[in-house]
Design a protein around this nucleic acid. Structure first.
Lengths: 131, 131
DNA sequence: TGGTTAAATAACTCATCGGTTAAATACAGG
DNA sequence: CCTGTATTTAACCGATGAGTTATTTAACCA
């Protein structure tokens, strides 16, 4: 119902192996609920609940094709996680090769130069309240 | 593939805003439990529990200094998440996280942080698979 | 219309989680 | 030793989450 914290919802969604398996399957392409459920020995309503959680987490979207509700990966949730993780990447030194790649992209000529002087995202600050 | 339950534990740990705030604080440097607890209006045992969860998730480690147990960031958990996420990066294009990493490098390099990441050219969705 | 298939909802159980307070442990110093 | 400080453990409680079976909604087809 309420959507107080999407990032929390996304991480919570990813904390379940069944849901990660569903995402792995969806990474291969859009699929119906039935086919998604097939590899698991849990009931269909359970799958339906998992899909609802994934959808609310911004990790999948659902369409409509006749009686079927095909599910597909939604980049939004992944981007949210990636963005959060980016704040910590310098802590374990994976930034250099990423920077190299970025510079290659720059050379390819597609990047706009960051130009806004006032910073927007605070570093690690965090929302301190919970629940 | 690493321990799959470990990954679940890591995502579950990250699903709590209080714990993410603790990590944000620890990103600034090693600290005692007391100082860690200060910004929050929850009890000390609650913080202690959060730290235990973070430790089990591979996101922090704890040492010993007299009566204090200083906590610090542990890269392992972050790397686990990053590796998992890498499998899905091709689904939304990589320019975004590369830019973020680049900005992190900038931040690490100088005190004044410029830049607004929002005007980067984004690639289209691009259906695909990987792994 | 009725029947079949696809998926979601309802209502319930049970385990886990985040929080509490009170007590216990570990260490430093007189 | 005893005392103070830092932190963890124990015992408990209400909320949430993952699962179930039974029922219901939605869409297609004869």
């Amino acid at each position: 119902m309420a959507d107080p914290d999407r990032l929390s919802a996304t991480f919570a969604a990813l904390a379940d192996p069944t849901r990660r398996a569903i995402l792995a399957r969806l990474a291969l392409g859009e699929t119906s609920v039935q086919k998604l459920a097939q590899p698991f020995d849990i009931s269909l309503p359970a799958i339906s609940k998992h899909l609802k959680v994934l959808e609310h987490a911004g990790l999948i979207t659902r369409g409509r094709d006749a009686q079927m509700r095909p599910c597909r990966i939604d980049a939004a949730g992944f981007i949210g996680v990636d963005h959060w993780l980016a704040e910590y990447r310098t802590l374990w030194g994976q930034s250099m090769d990423k920077l190299e790649s970025y510079l290659e992209v720059l050379k390819a000529g597609e990047a706009a130069t960051p130009a806004n002087p006032r910073n927007v995202t605070r570093k690690g600050a965090g929302r301190g309240r919970q629940k």
